[in-house]
């Protein structure tokens, strides 16, 4: 059975892991390579690495940090931030990423998703959608690290993005980001109804119960969280134990040893 994935997220600015609340009030949370290695050792199913200032500062992703992170972890690595073209994506993949997330550039030019999927396969194209509530059951897409309202309906964009070539959706509720109030289950369910690609829930994780809700009621395939790991409230291992007790199928610690 395909396991539900737990994905620690490393928001990186200027080579350091940072974490904000509702995309602002950003504080330092450590070294990206060290944190990625620690979470992988704890049983993370994947590591997500978002260069959160790349797009707004018109900068390319910090490829050397990607390379050093990729060299230290033997679980998949998803990298986003500042990817604007097929060549940008190629550079991130060659630095050691397994999947690449795009947001701003795809909103500006949706065919980018098609071009990347044709070149690299849709399995490594992740569409990151930062969404803010407009009214009940209606969300708008934000770009440039949450700074600009693209005035695009998030559910419609999810459907179009998947049809163009996104092989996975990383859906972040900006309203919930960093609040620990739980994931936006209405947003997740609305998107799940229109796409059949894997769905990663992001924004609002306060604890294991929120993740259980996102993976069951929200129909997500994976949950992404940052604060609860960075602040040490949970290790990936203790979190998985709670999810498992709640009936969620997670990957257990392997009995295989190397060497």
């Amino acid at each position: 059975m395909l396991r539900k994935r737990i994905i620690p997220c490393l928001d990186v600015a200027d080579g350091r892991v940072v974490k904000g609340i509702q995309f602002v009030d950003i504080v330092d949370a450590g070294d990206p390579v060290e944190l990625a290695s620690r979470y992988a050792a704890q049983g993370a199913d994947e590591i997500c690495f978002l260069d959160i200032t790349a797009s707004s500062d018109e900068r390319r992703t910090l490829l050397d940090v990607v390379a050093r992170t990729a060299a230290r972890v033997n679980v998949p690595l998803t990298v986003g931030g500042g990817v604007r073209s097929v060549e940008d994506m190629r550079a991130v993949l060659r630095a050691g990423a397994d999947k690449v997330a795009v947001n701003t550039a795809a909103v500006r030019r949706p065919d980018l998703l098609k071009e990347c999927a044709t070149t690299f396969g849709r399995q490594c194209v992740v569409l990151a959608i930062d969404a803010r509530t407009v009214s009940p059951q209606s969300w708008s897409v934000y770009t440039h690290g949450g700074r600009r309202d693209a005035a695009v309906d998030a559910v419609g964009w999810a459907e179009l993005g998947a049809s163009l070539g996104a092989g996975e959706l990383l859906v972040t509720s900006m309203d919930r980001d960093g609040t620990k109030d739980g994931y936006d289950l209405d947003l997740l369910s609305a998107i799940r109804r229109v796409v059949d690609v894997p769905l990663i829930a992001s924004g609002g994780a306060g604890g294991a119960a929120d993740m259980v809700d996102a993976l069951s009621k929200g129909h997500a395939d994976a949950v992404l969280a940052a604060s609860i790991f960075h602040h040490g409230e949970y290790t990936v291992g203790t979190l998985k134990q709670e999810l498992s007790r709640a009936g969620i199928a997670v990957r257990e610690e392997s009995s295989v040893t190397w060497p």
């Binding site: 395909l2 994947e46 092989g167 894997p198």
Partner: peptide
């Protein structure tokens, strides 16, 4: 199977 792509850890 769905979801597709088949993404994640499986037996």
């Amino acid at each position: 199977g769905r979801p597709l792509p088949h993404t994640g850890w499986n037996d």
